[in-house]
Design a protein around this nucleic acid. Structure first.
Lengths: 207, 207
DNA sequence: ACCTTAGCCATACATATGTATGGTATTATT
DNA sequence: AATAATACCATACATATGTATGGCTAAGGT
């Protein structure tokens, strides 16, 4: 059914997904034309018609911005996961996306937030398990007792945060792992963000 | 800054949130007028102007559907929770929303899905705990081993689903609770939907 | 050479959409 | 009684938006 898209059509579809998923509102033909530098909406119109014909989008006639992603029928839209983060022992954080989670449409990213997949079980007493996706907000100040993502010597960890006098304690919610204490001036330490939520898809067998 | 909204304005704002968050695309003035039975777009126009003046939305002039929710800055948007659902013993399901979860914008509801807050711990071995929000999709056929929400004698339960020859088994993921077996013809039994995801906010202390 | 496909532009058109303005009725407040 | 705010309607207008049609070029297949 679905034929391959040409390069140009792919770029336009990418733009559509980016706008719809990211910005939340489908663009008008004029928007698309403007973005790609087309002087004419008819050009866009023809590309959209081609993309629709190949089954990737659906359009309602005469209505503005009425572009729907057919992908959405699958309920799941790919979202990049920035890296794996160790709840147990530190793992390397990857510069690029290392994996793609099938995140349901329920999961539209909060602005500036990002996702990490948790590996290990050091937070199991906080009910966060390996395979869970944590939603990380980098724009919040950590408070004592909150679960944070931190980078320590180029590796990322998820731990509960406690601020002491001269050092910061990162404690696991699992007695098998011991607390990490970091001097506040330690250079290669950085709080990446705060875990504001946990999401777990039920596609794979839970547990 | 933000003044109180009138009843009518509240209803319109609710509709806006519902459309933007649920359907993914802001409505046109005509859409809103149609929904509320207004014969005229100008009526809507004036309401929107009032709502904007009070700071709840932002509009871009001359552009179609260019209604933004100012709430979105807060990252969290209120979502109704339809009821409580017992993971342990059945509880009554409420006709209206009993509570409101601050669901992050990461959590845009899949179409027709709804939320339930889990009470009890019968699913703890499936890593679902009391207080968690389950996302329920009523439009999927349950398969063996999936976690479903079911109504049994006017009470709702969350259990793992298994289809047998003449009966349906609902098993808890916790040895403390015993399996429920229902004859397929039992009248007051109904599968409500399938749990497609679990969300837990980290606002309150986890655990 | 011929045809198809992709990619782009220009023009023209219908209407969907937002906007401005003025009017009426109701209710509450002063 | 006067005033203001809310809620709704009708009409008129400008333009944003989608659509239809034709034409032009480059690349590739037959």
């Amino acid at each position: 059914m679905k034929t391959e898209l040409t390069e140009t059509q792919k770029k336009i579809l990418d733009f559509l997904i980016e706008q719809i998923k990211g910005k939340g509102i489908p663009p008008t033909l004029a928007d698309i034309a403007n973005y790609f530098g087309y002087s004419n909406r008819a050009t866009v119109q023809q590309h959209l018609k081609a993309i629709e014909k190949k089954g990737y989008i659906r359009k309602s006639p005469k209505l503005s911005r009425a572009i729907e992603l057919t992908l959405e029928d699958k309920f799941f839209v790919p979202k990049p996961v920035l890296g794996e983060v160790a709840a147990g022992n530190p793992l390397t954080i990857y510069p690029d996306a290392i994996d793609t989670v099938e995140l349901p449409t329920i999961a539209r990213m909060p602005k500036d937030s990002f996702l990490l997949r948790v590996k290990g079980d050091s937070l199991k007493d906080a009910y966060i398990f390996g395979g869970d996706i944590v939603i990380v907000n980098p724009n919040l100040e950590p408070k004592n007792g909150q679960i944070v993502v931190a980078i320590l010597d180029d590796a990322a960890v998820v731990k509960r945060f406690y601020k002491k006098k001269n050092e910061i304690e990162l404690v696991s919610e699992n007695p098998d792992y011991k607390t990490i204490a970091i001097d506040k001036k330690y250079p290669s330490f950085k709080i990446v963000g705060i875990v504001v939520g946990v999401y777990r898809s039920m596609n794979k067998k839970a547990g």
